[in-house]
């Protein structure tokens, strides 16, 4: 039976900035008191409620610092929410930690492989922590090493692995105990294009076995290709939630033309809005405009002549086709990659 995931009104306030040394410790605390550093409060999650259905691939999309990893952290018992609740299946994440940890597999954003062990030992010890008998441990480890193309490195210490190899091993490890829910925090970061496609196949296959998957990503293609549903979050809040197709269809017009002007005479925005096929125009801090329209390239000549007649100095045009990137821009006013 597939297992779902739910959060209700999650809020997480970090009291200190992340730099190492900010957490606990009498020596660290003595330092902090001495310097009288002003206390910074960061709201990483700001009332986030979401529901991941059993058996679906759910994507969390958002810019750096949006709160994706914090959400994964709360759901995997690694971060204590300031307020709000979270459940994996019927288990309350905070109150039934051991039961929750039994159900989940986690690939963190930052690799955390056991550097004192070889690749194979990392997998077998992980399975041992989950009480899997020795024979089964070895079989599964061999299978996953093969699947992630790590067999020839299986008996080496991971210290010398490349970033992509560590990432692959980290994903393999998360599957060792056959968890019902898999959390993948930016699983394809650092993977070459070929390996990324291999990973997508593995994720789909795992999902077809009836498992629930929650992944975070920066890549539109990935979200588009893998996810049944997608939540876009920013500043710890949900901005949009739907299937990738519906989300894309919700962008006015679909095409986005980002224009840059050297000078911007009054009335230019209205003139742009009046062009055939233009759905929405947004001024961009005095130097440009974002135009959402039904058509792309064919608008350019009209915009160019408009610029010429009004005396606006058109410097740069960028056209993008319907995509989640545009969607994000539409909802937040900033690019995913900013």
């Amino acid at each position: 039976m597939a297992v779902g995931v739910r959060t209700q009104d999650l809020r997480k306030i970090y009291n200190s900035a992340p730099p190492a040394g900010a957490t606990g410790g009498f020596i660290a605390r003595a330092d902090a008191k001495g310097s009288k550093a002003p206390k910074t409060e960061i709201a990483a999650l700001n009332g986030l409620s979401l529901e991941v259905l059993p058996g679906e691939i759910f994507g969390l999309l958002g810019p750096n610092g949006a709160g994706k990893s914090t959400t994964v952290g709360v759901l995997t018992t690694r971060v204590r929410p300031t307020t709000g609740q979270a459940w994996v299946g019927d288990h309350h994440v905070w109150q039934e930690q051991a039961a929750v940890k039994h159900l989940i597999g986690v690939v963190p954003q930052r690799p955390n492989l056991d550097f004192s062990l070889t690749a194979r030992e990392i997998l077998t010890f992980h399975a041992a922590y989950f009480g899997i008998p020795a024979k089964q441990r070895d079989e599964r480890a061999n299978g996953l090493l093969e699947k992630f193309k790590l067999t020839d490195r299986a008996n080496q210490m991971v210290r010398g692995f490349s970033g992509g190899m560590m990432q692959r091993l980290s994903i393999a490890r998360s599957m060792m105990h056959d968890p019902e829910v898999l959390f993948l925090d930016e699983p394809s970061a650092g993977l070459d294009p070929q390996t990324r496609i291999l990973l997508w196949e593995i994720i789909r296959e795992y999902n077809q076995a009836g498992k629930t998957i929650l992944l975070t990503t920066h890549y539109m293609e990935e979200a588009d290709a893998l996810c049944n549903r997608l939540a876009i979050i920013d500043h710890g809040k949900m901005i949009a939630l739907d299937t990738p197709q519906n989300l894309k269809a919700s962008i006015p017009g679909g095409y986005l033309l980002r224009l840059h002007f050297g000078s911007q005479p009054p009335g230019l925005m209205d003139a742009l809005q009046a062009l055939a096929g233009v759905r929405e125009v947004r001024a961009n801090d005095g130097t440009g405009a974002d135009v959402y329209a039904d058509r792309g390239g064919s608008l350019i000549p009209e915009i160019a002549s408009l610029a010429a007649t009004t005396g606006a100095d058109l410097r740069d045009v960028h056209i993008s086709e319907p995509s989640l990137e545009n969607l994000f821009l539409h909802h937040t006013g900033r690019s995913l990659r900013d």
Binding site: T76, A98, K101, H102, N112, D114, F115, F130
Partner: peptide, 17 residues
């Protein structure tokens, strides 16, 4: 805890931390 974060794998094992 700090450098390699390798303890995280054990923190995620099904046992009270």
């Amino acid at each position: 805890f700090q450098w390699t974060r390798e303890i995280e794998d054990r923190l995620l094992a099904p046992i009270d931390i």
